[in-house]
Design a protein around this nucleic acid. Structure first.
Lengths: 352, 352
DNA sequence: CTGAAGCGGTGAAACCTTTCAAGAATCCGG
DNA sequence: CCGGATTCTTGAAAGGTTTCACCGCTTCAG
C-alpha cells in the first residue's frame, strides 16, 4: 500500500481570471449588455449578441459565481448532509437528488456527518456561509433546535429519511413500520409460526419502527408475541452482528423457523453462520433481509429483502427543497414512501 | 412504492440575512474590526473581541461566503467529478477526500459524470463558476484538452484513478499492472498452471493494465501464455457478465483450475455459476476477485481479492490539490499506490 | 527630549456581477 | 418631415466582505 512518487514537474499558473469587463471591452459594448447576453439573451439584438458571444469564446470567459450570487442574492447550490456516505442507501439517494437538481441547473454539495452532531453542525454552518438555497439533512440526533435557527436565517430545510415531527417542516421518509409488517406477514403467509428478529438498538428510529411493524403483523395474525417472536439486539448492524444474533437465536429452547434481519449486511452474517452449521436455506431456515442492497440478488442464495425507493426519495426531497426555496408561499409536505417486498430464494415454507 | 402526502403546513420565511455591518453597529465598532475578529483575532484587543463575539452570537450572524470569496479571491470549496457515485470505490475515495479537506476547513462539491463527457464538461463549468480552489477529476475519456484550458483559467486539477500522461499534471492512481500480477502470482504459487481470466474490454484502461500484469506474471514463471491463460471478454462487469464468462471458460477443451475476475461483482457471478454446477470452491476451482469490496469477506465462500487503498487515494488526491491550489511554486506529483492481495477461502491449491 | 515603533482601531476602496432608470437609435404612420 | 412608439444599449448603483493606508495615542531607545 506504499505510495511512490514517480515523476515531477514544475508549475506556473495564470494570474487573473477574465471578467465581464474584459469581454465588454473586446466586444465593444458595455458590461450591462454582456450581462444581458448571459442572462436575458432575448433582450439583445442578434448582431450584438453574436459579437459578445464571440468575445466570450475567444477569452474563455467563465462567470464569477460569487459576484453573481452576491448581487443576485440567489445561488445555484444545494447542500445535503447524510449520515454515512459509504452507505449505498445514501449514495443512491444522493444520485436522485443530484439528477433532480441538474434539471434546474443546480449542483449538490454533499457532506457526511458520520452520525456525529458536531460534524453535522460544522457542515451546516459552512453550507449556510456558502449561501446554499437549502439543505437536505438526515439528522444525527433527535434534537432539531438547529432547524428553526437555520430557517430563521433564510435557508430552507428538508428532512431526509426521517418523518417530520411538525407540519411546518418538509420531510421525505420511508414507512419503516410497514416494512417490518411486510417482512413478517410474508413469513406468516409461508406458514411460519415462530420467527426470530435480529435487530439493532431501538434508540435508532428505523429499528424501532421496523420492530413495531413486525409485532403488529404477528398480532394481526392472531398470534401472541411471547410465543411467536424471539428478538435479539445486536450492537453492530453488520455481518459479524448477524452471526452473533444467529448464535443467540439458535440457543433458544423452542427453535425459530425463520429470521428477519434489520438490514442486508446482518442477513449476510446470518446466512454465513447457517452455512457453517450446515443448516440449509430456505429449507431448514428462512431468512429475510432489509434494504435490498445491490448484492442481495447475487448471493449464492439470493436474499429476500425489503426494498426502499432510494433514488425516488432523493428526487422527491430535491423537488421539495427547490420548491420551498423558490416560492414564498410554500406548502410544507411530508412525503412517506412505501417499502416493497422482494421475494427471492432465501425464504420458503417451514420444514414439515 | 407509491408516495403519500400526509400533512401540510404553510411557511413564511425570514426577509434578510444579517450582515457584518449589523454586527458592527450592535457592538459599537467598525466593520473592519468585525472582519478582524473573524479572520485575525490576534490583532484585536481582548475586550473588543468579546464585545463583537457577543454581538455575533446574539444576532445569529453567519458570514456571507460569496462576498468573502469575491473580495478575498479565494474559496473554501473543492470539486470532484467521479465516474459513478454509486460505485463503492468512488464513495470511499470521496470519504478520504472529504476528511482531508475538513482538516483545512474546506468542503467538497461532489458530482458524478456517469462516464459521459457532456456531463463532465457541464459540471466542470459549474464548478469553475463556483470558484472552486480546484477539481479532482476521474476523466470520462482519454481526451484531456479541457485540462489545459481549465488550468489556464486558474483552477487546479488533479487526476483521480488515472495516471497522468505528463509530468506537468498531478495524479493519484493505483498500479493495476501490479494488481494483475499479484492475482496471477498468487495462483501460480498455489500450483495452478492453467488459469482463466474473465476480463472487461481492453479499451478500459484498468482492464488493459490488469491483463498486462497477469500475462507478465505467467511469463515470469516461465509459462507460455498460449498454454497457461484462457481469456474471455465480457461486455458487462457485473454478476451476469461473470456467469457468462464462466460458461465460456468451462467449454474450453483443456479445463482451467483457477479463475481471475476483473472485479468482485464479476467474481460473484462466477461463484454463483460454480455453485449451480456443484463445482466446489476452492477445491475444484479457485477464484480471485478484484477491488475487495465490502461484502467480499462476508460471502458464503469469502473471496480472495485485490484491495486498493481507496480512502488513502482520496486523501492523497485532496492533499495534492490543496497544495497545488495553495502555492505558486508547486511541484507536480504523480502518486501511484500499490494494490494488495487479500487471501481468503476462495483460493486454494488445484485438485490432485 | 526626540523619533520611531507598537497598538487598536477606522473608513474607504476594491472585488465582479446584476439590475434598472434613462438615454440613443431606429422605425412607423400620418 | 415630425411625433411618438419601439427596440437596444448604457452607466451607475448596489450587494457584503476583506484589505490596507492611516490615525492618534503610548512606550521605549538613544
Amino acid at each position: 500500500m506504499a505510495a511512490t512518487v514517480e515523476r515531477m514537474g514544475r508549475s506556473s499558473r495564470a494570474p487573473r481570471r477574465r471578467s465581464i469587463k474584459d469581454v465588454a471591452d473586446l466586444a465593444g459594448v458595455s458590461v450591462g449588455t454582456v450581462s444581458n447576453v448571459l442572462n436575458k439573451p432575448a433582450l439583445v439584438a442578434e448582431e450584438t449578441r453574436i459579437k459578445v458571444e464571440a468575445a466570450i469564446a475567444s477569452l474563455g470567459f467563465v462567470r464569477n459565481g460569487s459576484a453573481r450570487q452576491l448581487r443576485a442574492g440567489t445561488s445555484q447550490t444545494v447542500g445535503a448532509i447524510v449520515l454515512d456516505i459509504s452507505n449505498p442507501f445514501f449514495t443512491d439517494v444522493a444520485r436522485g437528488v443530484e439528477d433532480r437538481l441538474a434539471e434546474d441547473d443546480h449542483i449538490l454539495i454533499l457532506a457526511s456527518s458520520d452520525d456525529r452532531l458536531d460534524k453535522q453542525h460544522r457542515y451546516l454552518r459552512l453550507l449556510e456561509e456558502q449561501g446554499v438555497q437549502g439543505v437536505l439533512v438526515s439528522p444525527a440526533s433527535n434534537d432539531l433546535t438547529w432547524l428553526d435557527q437555520t430557517r430563521a436565517r433564510g435557508t430552507a430545510v428538508v428532512l431526509l429519511d426521517r418523518p417530520s415531527p411538525s407540519p411546518q417542516i418538509c420531510s421525505v421518509a420511508v414507512d419503516d413500520v410497514k416494512g417490518g409488517d411486510l417482512a413478517a406477514t410474508h413469513l406468516l403467509e409461508l406458514g411460519h409460526q415462530r420467527i426470530g428478529f435480529v435487530n439493532g438498538s431501538t434508540k435508532i428510529r428505523q429499528c424501532a419502527d421496523r420492530r413495531k411493524g413486525v409485532r403488529k403483523a404477528l398480532r394481526a395474525a392472531g398470534l401472541r408475541i411471547a410465543d411467536s417472536l424471539v428478538e435479539t439486539t445486536v450492537s453492530a448492524l453488520n455481518a459479524d452482528g448477524g452471526e452473533e444474533g444467529l448464535e443467540r437465536l439458535l440457543r433458544v429452547s423452542e427453535p425459530v423457523t425463520a429470521i428477519i434481519c434489520a438490514n442486508d449486511l446482518t442477513a449476510l452474517g446470518v446466512l454465513r453462520g447457517l452455512r457453517r452449521r450446515r443448516i440449509s436455506v430456505p429449507e431448514q431456515m428462512a431468512v429475510v433481509g432489509y434494504d435490498d442492497v445491490e448484492f442481495a440478488g447475487v448471493l449464492t442464495t439470493p436474499l429476500t429483502s425489503i426494498r426502499q425507493p432510494r433514488y425516488q426519495i432523493g428526487r422527491a426531497a430535491a423537488t421539495l427543497l427547490l420548491n420551498e426555496a423558490g416560492s414564498r408561499t410554500h406548502r410544507h409536505e411530508q412525503v412517506l414512501f412505501q417499502p416493497e417486498l422482494i421475494v427471492r430464494e432465501s425464504s420458503g415454507p417451514p420444514a414439515r
